[in-house]
Design a protein around this nucleic acid. Structure first.
Lengths: 327, 327
DNA sequence: CTGAAAGCGCTAACAG
DNA sequence: CTGTTAGCGCTTTCAG
């Protein structure tokens, strides 16, 4: 007769069950359509559940990361659940992460969290954690990021290569000092400044601070249009920002790229959409996700292993919104 | 001394605890930073977790529904988690729903599921369920849908009102007989046919069967362009399909709306984006989500209550891709 | 290699 | 109104 212990062992591929016993149990499980209750398993062992916090469902870049994560985890027993983490809202972020911890999740992936460093470490102490999209090391969690400085540089290089000099940048306004170091938006702005200087264009540096939203792009573009000496190219910190820029330019009768070139960052589906065809920087979200999942599984296996930082290289995707500046 | 029972009662706002006791317990909970383990609660009572299955993260219509759900649940103790349910993949859908049941979720919302009727009823038998976006009644689950027939009619009315007669429709090809009755795509195609007949345009009915993807829209548009007698307006079954249509038309040098008018369905952010400005039908996703959440909470409270079907009315959002047909 | 027994953190019945 | 006592379904000792 199969005991509950035997079933448990088979389920967990644990040591101490004969091949015959395994087969027999497997057969019976299939016949009865038995499914172990993950919540109960969690009380003693694992829940086989991994939580992914997405700050903004609407951002078309995140699905790429998610695909990378689920793809990497597809062959395992882990199930991924997404926590909707209210855009740029620390409170909402805290609520979701607490909820994940309360549900006994085995590990969590935080995508571009806005919480303080201290909170991230607090979370990582409670449960194995991988942070995506925040620069800056930690002794308790692993990180996977895109090299935003390099991405900004390659984009500025593309524009100068086309002959642009007056290249403006629209950034997401950041006040918090630690976040200035860790957030991708700040890194992109920094990369832009460095690249401009490297090309001898320090005098032309022109940064507009709004936010990484379509509205932010729209407002930023309006400000740039009001300049006595308009830029010939605009580097928007994210594709969604570029969308707002394109909208403002269309409204103002500014032709892209004939009058002004526009480039984004993230290579979202928006950017690749034919009629828009936005030049952008691709972060290879799929790889980011796959790496995050791998690191998380490793950390679940060994919570004390020393943290890893992975930095991936973005690539430029030139399209039809960038061209030579008007003669 | 507070007993575990007292704490449990306070946590659940249950009957049988004096105000003083409540206050005292609350204070101690705060001091100790105690958090109840949801998994353990679930073993006896509820997990305070609600699962939402999204078939496709990338579809910009779904976030609206999600906002409606989370908004309605924000003031409750329920926490929402999303299950990523591989686009149009019954296997993936089954895996996610099983996972939700295994985790002891208190209720689940299925958004536009593709699973068979039998499977939906099976799920609903195991856990309180609300199905969004599938027409057709059930005795075990509630449904919330948009009136797709009415939506198609209002759109066809808009086009005939502009003077169009040759109005083509691009639909998502459906073979399964039950799904033909239940899926929104089939309802929209049906609504289109009926509306055309109602306007005395039975002879002009022209349906292209591809899929609700950008690629499907692109291919459908190519087919329509190859017609000896091109339509003057195209009703794409979904905004994402309209995107593909616009791309094909742009490529072929067909001007929208001067040569051909184009309309979509769903009123996604894509459609509202200025430079695109696609005429579309708004499903009020927020309301759909809010209603789904309400029904689910009610069903969790009383699993035997008789099922409710809510059908919401869509509204037309006319924009710049539709105009009078060329003279 | 197998199975009986204890207990994970909570809630539900019950007795005080 | 309070506290004690049994489990929820699993995993994990620990004897056999």
């Amino acid at each position: 007769m199969e005991s509950t212990t035997a079933v448990s062992k088979v389920l967990r591929n644990a040591y101490g069950a004969s091949p015959e016993m395994r087969a027999k149990v497997r057969r019976t499980i299939d016949e009865l359509g038995y499914r172990p209750l993950a919540a109960a398993r969690g009380l003693r062992g694992q829940t086989y559940t991994i939580g992914v916090m997405l700050p903004d469902i609407r951002n078309p870049f995140f699905p790429e990361i998610l695909d990378g994560i689920t793809g990497r985890l597809a062959d395992t027993d882990y199930q991924v659940f997404l926590g909707p983490g209210g855009c740029n809202d620390e409170k909402a972020e805290a609520r979701v992460t607490e909820a994940m911890i309360d549900r006994g999740m085995d590990g969590i992936v935080l995508i571009a969290p806005v919480s303080s460093r201290a909170r991230l470490e607090h979370i990582a102490t409670a449960v194995p954690t991988v942070v995506v999209g925040r620069h800056g090391h930690s002794s308790v969690y692993d990180t996977v990021t895109d090299d935003d400085v390099a991405g900004a540089a390659v984009l500025v290089g593309h524009l100068t290569g086309l002959g642009h000099r007056r290249i403006a940048h629209i950034e997401h306004h950041e006040t918090d000092p630690t976040r200035i170091e860790e957030m991708p938006n700040a890194q992109r702005a920094d990369g832009y400044r460095r690249a401009m200087r490297a090309h001898g264009l320090a005098e032309e540096i022109d940064v507009v601070s709004t936010s990484y939203t379509q509205q932010g792009g729209y407002e930023g573009a309006r400000q740039l249009l009001a300049r006595p000496n308009r830029p010939t190219a605009v580097f928007a910190g994210a594709d969604i920002v570029a969308m707002g820029v394109l909208e403002a330019f269309a409204e103002a009768g500014v032709s892209v790229p004939d009058d002004i070139s526009v480039a984004g960052y993230d290579n979202t589906t928006f950017a690749s959409f034919g009629p828009i065809s936005l030049t952008s920087v691709d972060q290879s979200g799929h790889e980011i996700g796959a790496n995050a999942a791998r690191l998380l599984v490793e950390r679940i296996a060994d919570r004390l292993k020393s943290p890893v930082q992975i930095k991936l290289s973005p690539t430029l995707v030139p399209r039809r919104t960038t061209a030579r500046p008007p003669a």
